[in-house]
Write a protein that binds this DNA or RNA. Structure first.
Lengths: 192, 192
DNA sequence: TTCATTTATTGAACTTGTTCAATGTTTTGA
DNA sequence: TCAAAACATTGAACAAGTTCAATAAATGAA
């Protein structure tokens, strides 16, 4: 059940078997069926999650009712609202399963326990947060500098398997364009 | 010389006087005159810096020659190219002083030393990276959902003192619009 | 002070992307 | 399996933002 998690952790840092087991035992599995929510706006995010099966989208609904996708998370990805989780304040995000999914969840209390009792866990999350940080910076620059066509093409190239599992509506909400316009981009690309 | 740094650190975590001194002693001061560079594209970022005086901009130049500002850093802000620094690869960014400035720099080696010898430093950087992470997420959502007028108004409200020290060219490069269009936004706002 | 450089403003033509409404296609669940 | 719902495409009118070129204003270095 936690093999994928183990592998993922060892990808970031080195941990002894004992430390690994101790850390992994803090997680609880949860199933989330397609279209169901792991979290909704207004709730305080009580977990940090690791996706073992399926696909989620983390998104925001703005004051005009439009959805913006912050990120997608498939197997082997971490998922949370770091702001809500860390600062214990109401979330502005929704986390929804786009397929029948499974996640391993760790509570704030258990994560604190890990920080205090398995020193390397501090490093694990520092390293992971750093990696996400780098990706977010990249995305900001791309959003500022690239045209929608380019961002769409880049998205397909960067996440070819994710792309196949997503509708155009979802991709448009990630790219920050209307789905009608995405449709026109697709036509333009296809006609080449 | 390191009072501001000390204060900043204690704002994130608690450290003993001894730990603080030990950590602060790893920094070297550097002056950077207006328009001079702390780092340029292609270089490997050798430092993590803390601004004690002045103002910097961290920016990227895209393939069409346009500049995008990733962030500004004034006194009491940290500054680095985390990707280049962490992964020791050539940077895609420029870091330039917009005023006569001073920074405290720590090298990768000394930062590693701190990680290994002052356990709480791991936490310091995890917490700081987390905070930046939250701000970056916020900015991505704003860039996706808000119109340029709104982003400009928000910028002024969020960073009123920074705003006064920046030219409209710099602000436009941060907002991701042409400076001509920013000028038109300003006119529209003023006429109300 | 002065002159060169950088920054800011403006208008006109253009490009990119949105909105709305209609239509067709695919998926899904009872 | 079949109707409803969700998804995708298209065109036309519109809005947001860019580009280019000209001019004005502010700044800075000698």
């Amino acid at each position: 059940m936690t093999e994928l998690l183990t592998k993922n952790i060892l990808n970031h840092i080195t941990l002894s078997k004992k430390e690994l087991e101790s850390f992994c035992s803090l997680f609880n599995q949860k199933e989330v069926r397609k279209k169901h929510f792991l979290m909704q706006e207004g709730e305080i995010c009580k977990f940090e999650g690791f996706v073992t099966k399926g696909l989620f989208r983390v998104y925001h609904i703005d004051s005009n009712g439009f959805e913006q996708v912050l990120y997608f998370a498939k197997e082997n990805w971490w998922i949370t609202d770091i702001d809500s989780f860390t600062n214990e304040k109401p979330s502005q995000l929704y986390i929804q399963a786009l397929e029948d999914s499974e996640v391993l969840l760790i509570s704030k209390k258990d994560k604190e326990f890990a920080y205090n009792n398995i020193p390397k866990i501090e490093k694990l999350f520092r390293v992971m947060t750093q990696k996400t940080h780098i990706a977010l910076q990249r995305r900001i620059i791309d959003n500022l500098s690239k045209t929608a066509d380019r961002r769409y093409i880049d998205f397909i190239e960067k996440y070819p398997n994710l792309f196949q599992r997503l509708t155009n509506l979802q991709i448009a909400a990630y790219l920050g364009i209307s789905h009608e316009f995405l449709s026109k981009i697709r036509r333009k690309i296809a006609s080449k």
